[in-house]
Design a protein around this nucleic acid. Structure first.
Lengths: 196, 196
DNA sequence: CATTTTATATACCGATTGGTATACTGTTAT
DNA sequence: ATAACAGTATACCAATCGGTATATAAAATG
Protein backbone atom coordinates (compact mmCIF):
# COMPACT_ATOMS: atom_id res chain seq x y z
CA UNK A 1 0.00 0.00 0.00
CA UNK A 2 0.96 3.63 0.12
CA UNK A 3 1.91 3.58 3.76
CA UNK A 4 5.46 4.78 3.76
CA UNK A 5 8.16 2.28 4.45
CA UNK A 6 11.01 4.45 5.58
CA UNK A 7 13.61 1.70 5.55
CA UNK A 8 13.02 1.06 1.87
CA UNK A 9 12.82 4.75 1.10
CA UNK A 10 16.25 5.17 2.65
CA UNK A 11 17.69 2.23 0.72
CA UNK A 12 16.25 3.62 -2.51
CA UNK A 13 17.64 7.07 -1.75
CA UNK A 14 21.05 5.59 -0.98
CA UNK A 15 20.95 3.62 -4.22
CA UNK A 16 20.30 6.75 -6.24
CA UNK A 17 22.86 8.89 -4.48
CA UNK A 18 25.66 6.32 -4.36
CA UNK A 19 25.07 5.96 -8.10
CA UNK A 20 25.12 9.70 -8.72
CA UNK A 21 27.97 10.71 -6.43
CA UNK A 22 29.64 7.58 -5.13
CA UNK A 23 29.81 6.24 -1.60
CA UNK A 24 32.45 8.70 -0.43
CA UNK A 25 30.93 11.57 -2.32
CA UNK A 26 27.58 11.60 -0.58
CA UNK A 27 26.67 12.58 2.97
CA UNK A 28 24.31 10.83 5.32
CA UNK A 29 22.26 14.00 5.66
CA UNK A 30 21.66 14.12 1.93
CA UNK A 31 20.50 10.51 1.84
CA UNK A 32 18.08 11.13 4.69
CA UNK A 33 16.71 14.32 3.15
CA UNK A 34 16.02 12.70 -0.20
CA UNK A 35 14.27 9.83 1.56
CA UNK A 36 12.15 12.36 3.42
CA UNK A 37 13.36 11.35 6.86
CA UNK A 38 15.78 12.71 9.44
CA UNK A 39 19.19 11.37 10.27
CA UNK A 40 18.28 9.56 13.49
CA UNK A 41 15.67 7.60 11.55
CA UNK A 42 18.36 6.49 9.15
CA UNK A 43 20.60 5.50 12.04
CA UNK A 44 17.71 3.65 13.63
CA UNK A 45 17.55 1.25 10.67
CA UNK A 46 21.24 1.21 9.76
CA UNK A 47 23.82 1.46 12.45
CA UNK A 48 26.24 3.47 10.31
CA UNK A 49 26.86 4.78 6.83
CA UNK A 50 28.90 1.67 6.18
CA UNK A 51 26.06 -0.48 7.49
CA UNK A 52 23.75 1.22 5.02
CA UNK A 53 26.08 0.28 2.18
CA UNK A 54 26.25 -3.29 3.45
CA UNK A 55 22.47 -3.51 3.61
CA UNK A 56 22.18 -2.17 0.09
CA UNK A 57 24.57 -4.79 -1.24
CA UNK A 58 22.92 -7.57 0.73
CA UNK A 59 19.52 -6.51 -0.61
CA UNK A 60 20.45 -6.82 -4.25
CA UNK A 61 23.63 -8.78 -4.81
CA UNK A 62 22.55 -12.30 -3.77
CA UNK A 63 19.65 -12.30 -6.22
CA UNK A 64 22.06 -11.44 -9.02
CA UNK A 65 24.42 -14.24 -8.05
CA UNK A 66 21.49 -16.64 -7.87
CA UNK A 67 20.22 -15.64 -11.30
CA UNK A 68 23.67 -16.13 -12.81
CA UNK A 69 24.04 -19.44 -11.03
CA UNK A 70 20.74 -20.59 -12.41
CA UNK A 71 21.69 -19.49 -15.92
CA UNK A 72 24.83 -21.56 -15.55
CA UNK A 73 23.03 -24.64 -14.25
CA UNK A 74 20.10 -24.70 -16.65
CA UNK A 75 22.20 -24.66 -19.79
CA UNK A 76 23.50 -27.75 -21.51
CA UNK A 77 26.24 -27.15 -24.03
CA UNK A 78 29.30 -25.10 -23.18
CA UNK A 79 28.55 -22.37 -25.70
CA UNK A 80 24.97 -22.25 -24.49
CA UNK A 81 26.30 -21.75 -20.98
CA UNK A 82 28.41 -18.80 -21.98
CA UNK A 83 25.57 -17.29 -23.93
CA UNK A 84 23.02 -17.63 -21.15
CA UNK A 85 25.36 -16.28 -18.48
CA UNK A 86 26.35 -13.36 -20.67
CA UNK A 87 22.71 -12.61 -21.47
CA UNK A 88 21.74 -12.70 -17.82
CA UNK A 89 24.72 -10.55 -16.83
CA UNK A 90 23.87 -7.91 -19.40
CA UNK A 91 20.18 -8.09 -18.55
CA UNK A 92 20.97 -7.28 -14.93
CA UNK A 93 23.26 -4.46 -16.00
CA UNK A 94 20.43 -2.87 -17.98
CA UNK A 95 17.54 -3.57 -15.60
CA UNK A 96 19.43 -2.53 -12.50
CA UNK A 97 21.74 0.08 -13.91
CA UNK A 98 22.22 2.07 -10.73
CA UNK A 99 23.15 -0.91 -8.60
CA UNK A 100 25.33 -2.44 -11.27
CA UNK A 101 27.26 0.78 -11.69
CA UNK A 102 27.78 1.01 -7.94
CA UNK A 103 29.11 -2.56 -7.98
CA UNK A 104 31.58 -1.75 -10.73
CA UNK A 105 32.70 1.41 -8.98
CA UNK A 106 33.29 -0.31 -5.65
CA UNK A 107 35.33 -2.95 -7.42
CA UNK A 108 37.78 -0.30 -8.60
CA UNK A 109 37.78 1.74 -5.40
CA UNK A 110 40.91 1.77 -3.23
CA UNK A 111 41.54 -1.51 -1.46
CA UNK A 112 41.71 0.00 2.00
CA UNK A 113 38.50 1.95 1.50
CA UNK A 114 35.23 1.01 3.14
CA UNK A 115 33.60 0.60 -0.24
CA UNK A 116 36.08 -2.00 -1.38
CA UNK A 117 35.81 -3.90 1.89
CA UNK A 118 32.03 -4.04 1.50
CA UNK A 119 32.11 -5.50 -2.01
CA UNK A 120 35.10 -7.80 -1.58
CA UNK A 121 33.40 -11.05 -0.67
CA UNK A 122 30.73 -10.62 -3.33
CA UNK A 123 33.41 -10.07 -5.92
CA UNK A 124 35.06 -13.31 -5.03
CA UNK A 125 31.78 -15.17 -5.28
CA UNK A 126 31.13 -13.63 -8.68
CA UNK A 127 34.60 -14.53 -9.89
CA UNK A 128 34.27 -18.08 -8.59
CA UNK A 129 30.96 -18.40 -10.38
CA UNK A 130 32.51 -17.41 -13.68
CA UNK A 131 35.53 -19.60 -13.07
CA UNK A 132 33.27 -22.57 -12.42
CA UNK A 133 31.87 -22.33 -15.93
CA UNK A 134 35.30 -23.25 -17.22
CA UNK A 135 36.17 -25.60 -14.38
CA UNK A 136 33.19 -27.83 -15.11
CA UNK A 137 33.94 -27.78 -18.79
CA UNK A 138 37.40 -28.97 -18.03
CA UNK A 139 36.05 -32.43 -17.22
CA UNK A 140 35.07 -32.84 -20.83
CA UNK A 141 37.74 -30.85 -22.58
CA UNK A 142 41.37 -31.12 -21.70
CA UNK A 143 42.75 -28.15 -23.50
CA UNK A 144 41.88 -25.44 -20.99
CA UNK A 145 43.87 -27.04 -18.23
CA UNK A 146 45.15 -24.47 -15.82
CA UNK A 147 43.73 -21.62 -17.84
CA UNK A 148 40.23 -21.61 -16.40
CA UNK A 149 40.90 -18.49 -14.40
CA UNK A 150 42.43 -16.69 -17.34
CA UNK A 151 39.30 -17.47 -19.31
CA UNK A 152 37.11 -16.19 -16.51
CA UNK A 153 39.13 -12.99 -16.44
CA UNK A 154 38.77 -12.58 -20.18
CA UNK A 155 35.07 -13.28 -20.17
CA UNK A 156 34.28 -10.96 -17.27
CA UNK A 157 36.62 -8.33 -18.63
CA UNK A 158 34.86 -8.25 -21.97
CA UNK A 159 31.41 -8.12 -20.39
CA UNK A 160 32.28 -5.45 -17.83
CA UNK A 161 34.00 -3.19 -20.30
CA UNK A 162 31.26 -3.66 -22.86
CA UNK A 163 28.72 -2.57 -20.26
CA UNK A 164 30.82 0.40 -19.19
CA UNK A 165 31.11 1.69 -22.74
CA UNK A 166 27.43 1.03 -23.25
CA UNK A 167 26.59 3.16 -20.23
CA UNK A 168 28.90 5.89 -21.42
CA UNK A 169 27.17 6.07 -24.77
CA UNK A 170 23.62 6.05 -23.46
CA UNK A 171 23.67 8.68 -20.78
CA UNK A 172 19.95 9.16 -20.84
CA UNK A 173 18.43 6.68 -18.43
CA UNK A 174 16.27 5.16 -21.14
CA UNK A 175 18.58 2.40 -22.24
CA UNK A 176 18.13 0.81 -25.66
CA UNK A 177 17.96 -2.99 -25.66
CA UNK A 178 21.03 -5.03 -26.34
CA UNK A 179 19.96 -7.47 -29.00
CA UNK A 180 20.58 -11.20 -28.83
CA UNK A 181 22.71 -10.79 -31.95
CA UNK A 182 25.01 -8.37 -30.18
CA UNK A 183 25.39 -10.66 -27.19
CA UNK A 184 26.03 -13.59 -29.50
CA UNK A 185 28.68 -11.60 -31.27
CA UNK A 186 30.44 -10.83 -27.99
CA UNK A 187 30.40 -14.43 -26.85
CA UNK A 188 31.44 -15.66 -30.26
CA UNK A 189 34.37 -13.30 -30.25
CA UNK A 190 35.39 -14.55 -26.84
CA UNK A 191 35.19 -18.20 -27.88
CA UNK A 192 36.62 -18.08 -31.37
CA UNK A 193 38.60 -14.89 -31.51
CA UNK A 194 38.34 -12.07 -33.97
CA UNK A 195 39.03 -13.86 -37.26
CA UNK A 196 35.63 -15.17 -38.21
CA UNK B 1 69.92 18.41 -5.74
CA UNK B 2 68.36 17.99 -2.35
CA UNK B 3 66.72 21.38 -2.39
CA UNK B 4 63.11 20.59 -1.82
CA UNK B 5 60.72 20.95 -4.71
CA UNK B 6 57.42 21.44 -2.98
CA UNK B 7 55.33 21.22 -6.12
CA UNK B 8 56.62 17.76 -6.88
CA UNK B 9 56.39 16.70 -3.25
CA UNK B 10 52.72 17.66 -3.30
CA UNK B 11 52.09 15.80 -6.54
CA UNK B 12 53.80 12.72 -5.14
CA UNK B 13 51.80 12.96 -1.93
CA UNK B 14 48.57 13.31 -3.89
CA UNK B 15 49.49 10.31 -6.03
CA UNK B 16 49.98 8.15 -2.96
CA UNK B 17 46.88 9.31 -1.14
CA UNK B 18 44.51 9.21 -4.13
CA UNK B 19 45.77 5.66 -4.62
CA UNK B 20 45.25 4.72 -0.98
CA UNK B 21 41.94 6.45 -0.31
CA UNK B 22 40.56 7.74 -3.59
CA UNK B 23 40.04 11.31 -4.72
CA UNK B 24 36.89 11.86 -2.67
CA UNK B 25 38.24 9.97 0.30
CA UNK B 26 41.22 12.20 0.98
CA UNK B 27 41.41 15.74 2.29
CA UNK B 28 43.59 18.56 1.11
CA UNK B 29 45.04 18.94 4.59
CA UNK B 30 46.21 15.35 4.58
CA UNK B 31 47.90 15.75 1.21
CA UNK B 32 49.71 18.88 2.40
CA UNK B 33 50.78 17.29 5.66
CA UNK B 34 52.26 14.23 3.98
CA UNK B 35 54.11 16.48 1.55
CA UNK B 36 55.50 18.41 4.52
CA UNK B 37 53.91 21.71 3.53
CA UNK B 38 50.93 23.75 4.62
CA UNK B 39 47.67 24.18 2.80
CA UNK B 40 48.30 27.64 1.37
CA UNK B 41 51.47 26.30 -0.24
CA UNK B 42 49.40 23.62 -1.95
CA UNK B 43 46.92 26.24 -3.10
CA UNK B 44 49.74 28.39 -4.34
CA UNK B 45 50.74 25.72 -6.87
CA UNK B 46 47.30 24.27 -7.57
CA UNK B 47 44.27 26.47 -7.59
CA UNK B 48 41.97 23.83 -6.11
CA UNK B 49 41.75 20.18 -5.14
CA UNK B 50 40.33 19.49 -8.58
CA UNK B 51 43.20 21.41 -10.16
CA UNK B 52 45.61 19.20 -8.27
CA UNK B 53 43.95 16.13 -9.74
CA UNK B 54 44.10 17.65 -13.21
CA UNK B 55 47.79 18.41 -12.80
CA UNK B 56 48.45 14.87 -11.65
CA UNK B 57 46.75 13.42 -14.70
CA UNK B 58 48.45 15.86 -17.05
CA UNK B 59 51.82 14.97 -15.53
CA UNK B 60 51.56 11.27 -16.21
CA UNK B 61 48.84 10.40 -18.69
CA UNK B 62 50.25 11.88 -21.91
CA UNK B 63 53.47 9.91 -21.58
CA UNK B 64 51.47 6.72 -21.30
CA UNK B 65 49.43 7.56 -24.38
CA UNK B 66 52.63 8.38 -26.25
CA UNK B 67 54.26 5.12 -25.26
CA UNK B 68 51.22 3.14 -26.41
CA UNK B 69 51.07 5.11 -29.60
CA UNK B 70 54.68 4.37 -30.28
CA UNK B 71 54.17 0.67 -29.58
CA UNK B 72 51.36 0.73 -32.10
CA UNK B 73 53.35 2.56 -34.75
CA UNK B 74 56.63 0.66 -34.51
CA UNK B 75 55.09 -2.76 -34.99
CA UNK B 76 54.60 -4.40 -38.33
CA UNK B 77 52.25 -7.34 -38.37
CA UNK B 78 48.82 -7.16 -36.79
CA UNK B 79 49.55 -9.76 -34.13
CA UNK B 80 52.83 -8.02 -33.36
CA UNK B 81 50.87 -4.82 -32.88
CA UNK B 82 48.54 -6.37 -30.37
CA UNK B 83 51.40 -8.00 -28.54
CA UNK B 84 53.47 -4.83 -28.30
CA UNK B 85 50.55 -2.68 -27.18
CA UNK B 86 49.50 -5.26 -24.59
CA UNK B 87 53.06 -5.54 -23.32
CA UNK B 88 53.41 -1.79 -23.02
CA UNK B 89 50.03 -1.46 -21.33
CA UNK B 90 50.89 -4.09 -18.75
CA UNK B 91 54.36 -2.68 -18.29
CA UNK B 92 52.86 0.70 -17.38
CA UNK B 93 50.38 -0.95 -15.05
CA UNK B 94 53.22 -2.60 -13.15
CA UNK B 95 55.74 0.25 -13.23
CA UNK B 96 53.25 2.92 -12.30
CA UNK B 97 50.83 0.95 -10.21
CA UNK B 98 49.54 3.84 -8.13
CA UNK B 99 48.74 6.04 -11.09
CA UNK B 100 47.27 3.22 -13.13
CA UNK B 101 44.98 2.23 -10.30
CA UNK B 102 43.83 5.83 -9.92
CA UNK B 103 43.08 5.88 -13.66
CA UNK B 104 40.99 2.74 -13.44
CA UNK B 105 39.13 4.01 -10.41
CA UNK B 106 38.28 7.35 -11.98
CA UNK B 107 36.99 5.54 -15.03
CA UNK B 108 34.40 3.77 -12.90
CA UNK B 109 33.56 6.75 -10.68
CA UNK B 110 30.14 8.42 -11.04
CA UNK B 111 29.76 10.34 -14.25
CA UNK B 112 28.78 13.59 -12.59
CA UNK B 113 31.70 13.41 -10.16
CA UNK B 114 34.75 15.61 -10.47
CA UNK B 115 36.94 12.56 -10.81
CA UNK B 116 35.12 11.28 -13.86
CA UNK B 117 35.14 14.69 -15.45
CA UNK B 118 38.90 14.91 -15.01
CA UNK B 119 39.62 11.56 -16.68
CA UNK B 120 36.99 11.73 -19.39
CA UNK B 121 38.98 13.17 -22.27
CA UNK B 122 41.96 10.94 -21.56
CA UNK B 123 39.70 7.92 -21.63
CA UNK B 124 38.43 8.82 -25.03
CA UNK B 125 41.93 9.25 -26.35
CA UNK B 126 42.90 5.87 -24.92
CA UNK B 127 39.87 4.21 -26.44
CA UNK B 128 40.50 5.84 -29.81
CA UNK B 129 44.06 4.62 -29.69
CA UNK B 130 42.95 1.04 -29.17
CA UNK B 131 40.23 1.37 -31.79
CA UNK B 132 42.77 2.61 -34.31
CA UNK B 133 44.67 -0.65 -34.05
CA UNK B 134 41.69 -2.37 -35.59
CA UNK B 135 40.72 0.49 -37.88
CA UNK B 136 44.06 0.42 -39.63
CA UNK B 137 43.95 -3.32 -39.93
CA UNK B 138 40.61 -3.01 -41.63
CA UNK B 139 42.32 -1.71 -44.74
CA UNK B 140 43.95 -5.08 -45.24
CA UNK B 141 41.35 -7.39 -43.79
CA UNK B 142 37.69 -7.10 -44.63
CA UNK B 143 36.22 -9.31 -42.00
CA UNK B 144 36.24 -6.92 -39.05
CA UNK B 145 34.08 -4.38 -40.78
CA UNK B 146 32.01 -2.42 -38.31
CA UNK B 147 33.35 -4.41 -35.41
CA UNK B 148 36.51 -2.46 -34.76
CA UNK B 149 35.06 -0.87 -31.65
CA UNK B 150 33.78 -4.14 -30.31
CA UNK B 151 37.28 -5.54 -30.69
CA UNK B 152 38.75 -2.56 -28.90
CA UNK B 153 36.29 -3.09 -26.08
CA UNK B 154 37.18 -6.75 -25.84
CA UNK B 155 40.90 -6.11 -25.92
CA UNK B 156 40.83 -3.33 -23.33
CA UNK B 157 38.38 -5.26 -21.19
CA UNK B 158 40.64 -8.28 -21.04
CA UNK B 159 43.71 -6.21 -20.25
CA UNK B 160 42.05 -4.05 -17.60
CA UNK B 161 40.43 -6.94 -15.82
CA UNK B 162 43.60 -9.00 -15.99
CA UNK B 163 45.47 -6.15 -14.33
CA UNK B 164 42.79 -5.66 -11.69
CA UNK B 165 42.89 -9.33 -10.69
CA UNK B 166 46.67 -9.21 -10.78
CA UNK B 167 46.67 -6.28 -8.35
CA UNK B 168 44.19 -8.05 -6.11
CA UNK B 169 46.40 -11.11 -5.86
CA UNK B 170 49.65 -9.26 -5.22
CA UNK B 171 48.74 -6.87 -2.49
CA UNK B 172 52.31 -6.39 -1.40
CA UNK B 173 53.76 -3.59 -3.42
CA UNK B 174 56.56 -5.77 -4.72
CA UNK B 175 54.91 -6.98 -7.90
CA UNK B 176 56.16 -10.13 -9.60
CA UNK B 177 56.90 -9.78 -13.29
CA UNK B 178 54.34 -10.74 -15.86
CA UNK B 179 56.20 -13.00 -18.26
CA UNK B 180 56.12 -12.61 -22.00
CA UNK B 181 54.48 -16.01 -22.15
CA UNK B 182 51.57 -14.83 -20.04
CA UNK B 183 51.07 -11.75 -22.18
CA UNK B 184 51.30 -13.86 -25.31
CA UNK B 185 48.69 -16.20 -23.90
CA UNK B 186 46.31 -13.31 -23.23
CA UNK B 187 46.72 -11.86 -26.70
CA UNK B 188 46.47 -15.26 -28.28
CA UNK B 189 43.22 -15.90 -26.44
CA UNK B 190 41.88 -12.60 -27.63
CA UNK B 191 42.81 -13.28 -31.24
CA UNK B 192 41.97 -16.94 -31.60
CA UNK B 193 39.57 -17.66 -28.78
CA UNK B 194 39.82 -20.29 -26.11
CA UNK B 195 39.97 -23.50 -28.17
CA UNK B 196 43.65 -23.80 -28.92
C1' DC C 1 -5.48 0.09 31.50
C1' DA C 2 -0.49 0.04 32.08
C1' DT C 3 3.82 -0.97 30.13
C1' DT C 4 6.99 -1.97 26.89
C1' DT C 5 8.58 -1.52 22.12
C1' DT C 6 8.89 0.67 17.67
C1' DA C 7 9.58 4.66 15.19
C1' DT C 8 10.38 9.34 14.75
C1' DA C 9 12.12 14.40 15.47
C1' DT C 10 14.82 18.42 17.73
C1' DA C 11 18.95 19.81 18.72
C1' DC C 12 23.36 19.06 19.40
C1' DC C 13 28.57 17.04 19.29
C1' DG C 14 33.65 17.48 17.97
C1' DA C 15 36.16 16.88 13.87
C1' DT C 16 37.04 17.75 9.22
C1' DT C 17 35.79 19.71 4.72
C1' DG C 18 37.69 22.95 0.79
C1' DG C 19 39.39 27.40 0.71
C1' DT C 20 41.44 32.19 2.00
C1' DA C 21 42.97 36.88 4.10
C1' DT C 22 47.08 38.45 5.73
C1' DA C 23 51.68 38.79 6.83
C1' DC C 24 56.30 37.42 6.47
C1' DT C 25 60.63 35.75 4.20
C1' DG C 26 64.14 35.29 0.84
C1' DT C 27 65.57 36.21 -3.86
C1' DT C 28 65.77 38.86 -8.03
C1' DA C 29 65.57 43.00 -10.90
C1' DT C 30 65.89 47.93 -11.30
C1' DA D 1 69.09 50.55 -1.94
C1' DT D 2 64.63 49.57 -3.12
C1' DA D 3 60.95 47.76 -5.23
C1' DA D 4 58.89 43.70 -7.06
C1' DC D 5 58.06 38.95 -6.76
C1' DA D 6 57.96 34.06 -5.60
C1' DG D 7 57.14 31.13 -1.88
C1' DT D 8 55.54 29.89 2.65
C1' DA D 9 53.14 30.04 7.34
C1' DT D 10 49.59 31.52 11.01
C1' DA D 11 45.19 31.77 11.75
C1' DC D 12 40.90 31.82 10.32
C1' DC D 13 36.15 30.95 7.60
C1' DA D 14 31.35 28.90 6.98
C1' DA D 15 29.74 24.50 5.79
C1' DT D 16 29.56 19.82 6.14
C1' DC D 17 31.16 15.36 8.01
C1' DG D 18 29.41 10.95 10.60
C1' DG D 19 27.10 10.20 14.71
C1' DT D 20 24.17 10.73 19.15
C1' DA D 21 21.58 12.19 23.65
C1' DT D 22 17.09 13.01 24.63
C1' DA D 23 12.29 13.53 24.15
C1' DT D 24 7.97 12.06 22.18
C1' DA D 25 4.29 9.86 19.92
C1' DA D 26 2.06 5.74 18.37
C1' DA D 27 1.44 0.91 18.42
C1' DA D 28 1.83 -3.57 20.27
C1' DT D 29 1.80 -6.39 24.50
C1' DG D 30 0.77 -7.75 29.12
Amino acid sequence: MNQKNNKELILQSALELFYEKGYEGVGVQEIATRAGVTKPTLYYYFKSKYGLLESLLETKYPAILDALDEAERTSDSFSDKLLKVASEYIRVALNDKQFFYIMLGLQYSPRQSEGHRAIESYNHRMFDLFTQIFEKQNVYLGNMNGRQEQFAIGFMGILNYYILVYYERNQDDNLPVVTDAEIFSLVHQFMHGIFS
